[in-house]
Protein backbone atom coordinates (compact mmCIF):
# COMPACT_ATOMS: atom_id res chain seq x y z
CA UNK A 1 0.00 0.00 0.00
CA UNK A 2 1.32 3.36 -0.84
CA UNK A 3 0.07 6.30 1.10
CA UNK A 4 0.08 9.22 -1.27
CA UNK A 5 -0.25 11.68 1.56
CA UNK A 6 2.83 10.53 3.40
CA UNK A 7 5.57 13.12 3.53
CA UNK A 8 9.03 11.68 3.82
CA UNK A 9 12.39 13.37 4.12
CA UNK A 10 13.93 11.43 1.26
CA UNK A 11 11.16 12.25 -1.12
CA UNK A 12 9.82 15.71 -0.35
CA UNK A 13 6.43 16.45 -1.76
CA UNK A 14 6.13 18.93 -4.57
CA UNK A 15 5.52 22.41 -3.25
CA UNK A 16 2.00 22.67 -4.49
CA UNK A 17 1.05 19.34 -2.91
CA UNK A 18 2.31 20.38 0.53
CA UNK A 19 0.59 23.71 0.14
CA UNK A 20 -2.65 21.96 -0.69
CA UNK A 21 -2.28 19.43 2.12
CA UNK A 22 -1.84 22.00 4.87
CA UNK A 23 -4.01 24.75 3.50
CA UNK A 24 -6.73 22.41 2.38
CA UNK A 25 -7.38 20.73 5.69
CA UNK A 26 -6.95 23.47 8.30
CA UNK A 27 -5.91 26.87 7.11
CA UNK A 28 -8.38 27.33 4.29
CA UNK A 29 -11.55 26.60 6.27
CA UNK A 30 -10.28 28.75 9.13
CA UNK A 31 -9.39 31.64 6.83
CA UNK A 32 -12.78 31.36 5.20
CA UNK A 33 -14.53 31.52 8.58
CA UNK A 34 -12.43 34.45 9.73
CA UNK A 35 -12.98 36.29 6.46
CA UNK A 36 -16.72 35.86 6.85
CA UNK A 37 -16.62 37.22 10.39
CA UNK A 38 -14.56 40.23 9.34
CA UNK A 39 -16.97 40.96 6.51
CA UNK A 40 -19.88 40.72 8.94
CA UNK A 41 -18.17 43.04 11.41
CA UNK A 42 -17.36 45.60 8.74
CA UNK A 43 -20.85 45.49 7.25
CA UNK A 44 -22.48 46.11 10.63
CA UNK A 45 -20.13 49.04 11.32
CA UNK A 46 -20.38 50.67 7.92
CA UNK A 47 -24.15 50.48 7.82
CA UNK A 48 -24.31 51.35 11.53
CA UNK A 49 -26.87 48.62 12.10
CA UNK A 50 -28.48 48.70 15.54
CA UNK A 51 -27.65 45.64 17.61
CA UNK A 52 -31.30 44.59 17.92
CA UNK A 53 -31.27 44.06 14.15
CA UNK A 54 -27.89 42.47 13.71
CA UNK A 55 -25.16 42.60 16.34
CA UNK A 56 -21.53 42.62 15.23
CA UNK A 57 -19.44 39.53 15.99
CA UNK A 58 -17.36 41.54 18.43
CA UNK A 59 -20.47 42.46 20.36
CA UNK A 60 -21.59 38.83 20.51
CA UNK A 61 -18.16 37.82 21.72
CA UNK A 62 -18.35 40.49 24.39
CA UNK A 63 -21.71 39.19 25.60
CA UNK A 64 -20.32 35.68 25.66
CA UNK A 65 -17.49 36.78 27.89
CA UNK A 66 -19.81 38.79 30.15
CA UNK A 67 -22.42 36.08 30.58
CA UNK A 68 -20.21 33.02 30.28
CA UNK A 69 -21.33 31.52 33.58
CA UNK A 70 -25.03 31.52 32.79
CA UNK A 71 -24.43 30.61 29.13
CA UNK A 72 -22.33 27.62 30.11
CA UNK A 73 -24.94 26.54 32.61
CA UNK A 74 -27.69 26.67 30.00
CA UNK A 75 -25.49 24.98 27.44
CA UNK A 76 -24.86 22.13 29.82
CA UNK A 77 -28.58 21.70 30.24
CA UNK A 78 -29.16 21.63 26.48
CA UNK A 79 -26.20 19.33 25.86
CA UNK A 80 -27.48 16.90 28.45
CA UNK A 81 -30.90 16.80 26.80
CA UNK A 82 -29.30 16.30 23.39
CA UNK A 83 -26.97 13.52 24.54
CA UNK A 84 -29.59 11.67 26.57
CA UNK A 85 -32.18 11.95 23.81
CA UNK A 86 -29.71 10.81 21.20
CA UNK A 87 -28.66 7.81 23.27
CA UNK A 88 -32.29 6.75 23.71
CA UNK A 89 -32.98 7.24 20.00
CA UNK A 90 -29.91 5.18 19.11
CA UNK A 91 -31.00 2.29 21.32
CA UNK A 92 -34.57 2.36 20.01
CA UNK A 93 -33.49 2.60 16.37
CA UNK A 94 -30.96 -0.20 16.54
CA UNK A 95 -33.38 -2.62 18.18
CA UNK A 96 -36.33 -1.65 16.00
CA UNK A 97 -34.12 -1.63 12.91
CA UNK A 98 -32.85 -5.13 13.65
CA UNK A 99 -36.41 -6.38 14.15
CA UNK A 100 -37.62 -4.77 10.94
CA UNK A 101 -34.64 -6.06 8.97
CA UNK A 102 -35.19 -9.57 10.34
CA UNK A 103 -38.86 -9.87 9.51
CA UNK A 104 -41.00 -8.61 6.65
CA UNK A 105 -44.07 -9.01 8.83
CA UNK A 106 -42.66 -6.75 11.52
CA UNK A 107 -41.74 -4.30 8.78
CA UNK A 108 -45.26 -4.24 7.38
CA UNK A 109 -46.82 -3.72 10.79
CA UNK A 110 -44.39 -1.19 12.28
CA UNK A 111 -42.74 0.68 9.45
CA UNK A 112 -45.86 2.47 8.30
CA UNK A 113 -46.35 3.91 11.79
CA UNK A 114 -42.81 5.11 11.95
CA UNK A 115 -43.06 6.80 8.58
CA UNK A 116 -46.32 8.51 9.58
CA UNK A 117 -44.76 9.51 12.88
CA UNK A 118 -41.77 10.96 11.09
CA UNK A 119 -43.93 12.82 8.56
CA UNK A 120 -45.87 14.67 11.26
CA UNK A 121 -44.48 18.21 11.46
CA UNK A 122 -42.81 17.97 14.83
CA UNK A 123 -42.44 21.66 15.51
CA UNK A 124 -46.16 22.17 15.06
CA UNK A 125 -47.15 19.47 17.52
CA UNK A 126 -44.50 20.55 20.00
CA UNK A 127 -47.00 22.38 22.24
CA UNK A 128 -48.86 19.09 22.63
CA UNK A 129 -45.80 17.63 24.31
CA UNK A 130 -46.08 20.35 26.87
CA UNK A 131 -49.63 19.21 27.54
CA UNK A 132 -48.73 15.53 27.69
CA UNK A 133 -45.42 15.49 29.45
CA UNK A 134 -45.19 18.87 31.08
CA UNK A 135 -42.46 21.38 31.56
CA UNK A 136 -38.82 20.49 31.81
CA UNK A 137 -35.99 18.24 30.80
CA UNK A 138 -38.14 15.23 30.00
CA UNK A 139 -39.90 17.11 27.21
CA UNK A 140 -36.64 18.24 25.68
CA UNK A 141 -35.23 14.74 25.76
CA UNK A 142 -38.32 13.32 24.13
CA UNK A 143 -38.04 15.99 21.47
CA UNK A 144 -34.49 14.97 20.71
CA UNK A 145 -35.60 11.35 20.42
CA UNK A 146 -38.36 12.31 18.00
CA UNK A 147 -35.93 14.35 15.90
CA UNK A 148 -33.14 11.80 15.73
CA UNK A 149 -34.51 8.26 15.69
CA UNK A 150 -35.64 8.16 12.08
CA UNK A 151 -32.34 8.54 10.18
CA UNK A 152 -30.67 5.93 12.39
CA UNK A 153 -33.57 3.54 11.99
CA UNK A 154 -33.69 3.80 8.21
CA UNK A 155 -29.93 3.40 7.87
CA UNK A 156 -29.95 0.42 10.23
CA UNK A 157 -32.65 -1.38 8.25
CA UNK A 158 -30.94 -0.66 4.94
CA UNK A 159 -27.54 -1.66 6.31
CA UNK A 160 -28.66 -4.92 7.83
CA UNK A 161 -30.37 -5.88 4.59
CA UNK A 162 -27.45 -5.11 2.31
CA UNK A 163 -25.33 -8.18 3.04
CA UNK A 164 -24.09 -9.90 -0.13
CA UNK A 165 -26.37 -12.92 -0.82
CA UNK A 166 -23.44 -14.98 -2.07
CA UNK A 167 -21.54 -14.18 1.10
CA UNK A 168 -24.52 -15.38 3.13
CA UNK A 169 -24.54 -18.57 1.07
CA UNK A 170 -20.86 -18.99 1.89
CA UNK A 171 -21.45 -18.69 5.64
CA UNK A 172 -24.40 -21.07 5.40
CA UNK A 173 -22.08 -23.59 3.77
CA UNK A 174 -19.92 -23.23 6.89
CA UNK A 175 -22.90 -24.17 9.03
CA UNK A 176 -23.17 -20.68 10.53
CA UNK A 177 -26.15 -19.97 12.77
CA UNK A 178 -28.31 -16.87 12.32
CA UNK A 179 -26.61 -15.24 15.25
CA UNK A 180 -23.12 -16.04 13.90
CA UNK A 181 -24.09 -14.63 10.52
CA UNK A 182 -25.42 -11.48 12.16
CA UNK A 183 -22.17 -10.94 14.04
CA UNK A 184 -19.71 -11.99 11.37
CA UNK A 185 -21.39 -10.61 8.25
CA UNK A 186 -24.56 -8.58 8.65
CA UNK A 187 -23.46 -6.23 11.39
CA UNK A 188 -20.08 -5.30 9.88
CA UNK A 189 -21.77 -4.84 6.50
CA UNK A 190 -24.38 -2.58 8.12
CA UNK A 191 -21.94 -0.45 10.11
CA UNK A 192 -21.03 2.10 7.41
CA UNK A 193 -24.71 2.70 6.73
CA UNK A 194 -25.62 2.89 10.44
CA UNK A 195 -22.83 5.37 11.07
CA UNK A 196 -24.01 7.50 8.16
CA UNK A 197 -27.43 7.61 9.82
CA UNK A 198 -25.86 8.41 13.17
CA UNK A 199 -24.00 11.33 11.63
CA UNK A 200 -27.19 12.79 10.21
CA UNK A 201 -29.03 12.20 13.47
CA UNK A 202 -26.38 13.59 15.77
CA UNK A 203 -26.50 17.04 14.17
CA UNK A 204 -30.25 17.02 14.66
CA UNK A 205 -29.92 16.31 18.38
CA UNK A 206 -29.06 19.89 19.48
CA UNK A 207 -31.79 21.20 17.18
CA UNK A 208 -34.31 18.90 18.81
CA UNK A 209 -33.21 19.97 22.27
CA UNK A 210 -33.51 23.66 21.41
CA UNK A 211 -36.96 23.26 19.86
CA UNK A 212 -38.03 21.34 22.95
CA UNK A 213 -36.79 24.16 25.15
CA UNK A 214 -38.63 26.74 23.05
CA UNK A 215 -41.96 25.32 24.11
CA UNK A 216 -41.55 23.24 27.19
CA UNK A 217 -38.71 24.43 29.35
CA UNK A 218 -37.53 27.36 31.38
CA UNK A 219 -33.97 26.20 31.09
CA UNK A 220 -31.44 25.61 28.37
CA UNK A 221 -30.12 27.57 25.42
CA UNK A 222 -33.43 27.25 23.58
CA UNK A 223 -35.30 28.88 26.38
CA UNK A 224 -32.63 31.54 26.72
CA UNK A 225 -32.78 32.20 23.00
CA UNK A 226 -36.51 32.74 22.87
CA UNK A 227 -36.46 34.84 26.03
CA UNK A 228 -33.70 37.15 24.86
CA UNK A 229 -35.37 37.60 21.50
CA UNK A 230 -38.52 38.60 23.36
CA UNK A 231 -36.54 41.13 25.34
CA UNK A 232 -34.77 42.37 22.19
CA UNK A 233 -31.44 41.26 23.70
CA UNK A 234 -30.36 40.14 20.29
CA UNK A 235 -26.62 39.79 21.10
CA UNK A 236 -27.50 37.33 23.89
CA UNK A 237 -29.71 35.40 21.48
CA UNK A 238 -26.81 35.24 19.04
CA UNK A 239 -24.51 34.05 21.80
CA UNK A 240 -26.92 31.19 22.46
CA UNK A 241 -27.05 30.38 18.74
CA UNK A 242 -23.25 30.34 18.59
CA UNK A 243 -23.10 27.87 21.46
CA UNK A 244 -25.75 25.58 19.97
CA UNK A 245 -23.92 25.60 16.65
CA UNK A 246 -20.58 25.00 18.33
CA UNK A 247 -22.10 22.01 20.07
CA UNK A 248 -23.43 20.72 16.75
CA UNK A 249 -20.00 21.06 15.16
CA UNK A 250 -18.38 19.32 18.12
CA UNK A 251 -20.67 16.28 18.00
CA UNK A 252 -20.26 16.08 14.23
CA UNK A 253 -16.51 15.81 14.52
CA UNK A 254 -16.88 13.34 17.38
CA UNK A 255 -18.99 11.22 15.03
CA UNK A 256 -16.36 11.48 12.30
CA UNK A 257 -13.68 10.44 14.74
CA UNK A 258 -15.82 7.54 15.91
CA UNK A 259 -16.41 6.53 12.29
CA UNK A 260 -12.71 6.43 11.49
CA UNK A 261 -12.12 4.33 14.60
CA UNK A 262 -14.90 1.83 13.99
CA UNK A 263 -14.73 1.22 10.24
CA UNK A 264 -11.13 1.94 9.25
CA UNK A 265 -11.49 -0.84 6.67
CA UNK A 266 -14.28 0.87 4.78
CA UNK A 267 -13.57 2.41 1.37
CA UNK A 268 -14.72 5.83 2.64
CA UNK A 269 -12.02 5.80 5.31
CA UNK A 270 -9.04 4.71 3.27
CA UNK A 271 -6.62 7.33 2.12
CA UNK A 272 -6.26 7.12 -1.62
CA UNK A 273 -5.35 3.60 -2.68
CA UNK A 274 -3.81 2.37 -5.88
Amino acid sequence: MTDLHAVTDEDPMPRHARYRGWLGSVALPLASLLGGLVLWELTVRWLALPSYLLPAPSEIALVMVEKWAILLDQARYTAWAAVAGFAIALAISLVLGALIAASRTVERVIYVWLVVFHAVPKVVVAPLLLVWIGFGLKSSIIFVVVFTFFPILVSTVTGLRSADPELLLLTRSMGASRWQTLRAIRLPTALPSIIAGVKVAITLAPVGAVVGEFVASNNGLGHMLIQSVGNLEVPTAFAAVVLVSAFGVLVWYLAEYFEAAVIPWHASQRTRED
Binding site: L170, A184, P188, H266
Partner: peptide, 14 residues
Protein backbone atom coordinates in the same frame (compact mmCIF):
# COMPACT_ATOMS: atom_id res chain seq x y z
CA UNK B 1 -16.27 -30.73 5.53
CA UNK B 2 -17.57 -28.78 2.56
CA UNK B 3 -15.43 -25.96 1.15
CA UNK B 4 -16.74 -23.51 -1.43
CA UNK B 5 -14.88 -21.13 -3.72
CA UNK B 6 -16.91 -18.70 -5.80
CA UNK B 7 -16.00 -16.63 -8.82
CA UNK B 8 -15.80 -13.61 -6.55
CA UNK B 9 -13.41 -14.09 -3.67
CA UNK B 10 -15.95 -12.78 -1.13
CA UNK B 11 -13.28 -11.71 1.34
CA UNK B 12 -14.39 -9.59 4.27
CA UNK B 13 -12.81 -6.14 4.19
CA UNK B 14 -13.05 -5.80 7.98
Amino acid sequence: GVGVVFQRDLLLDW
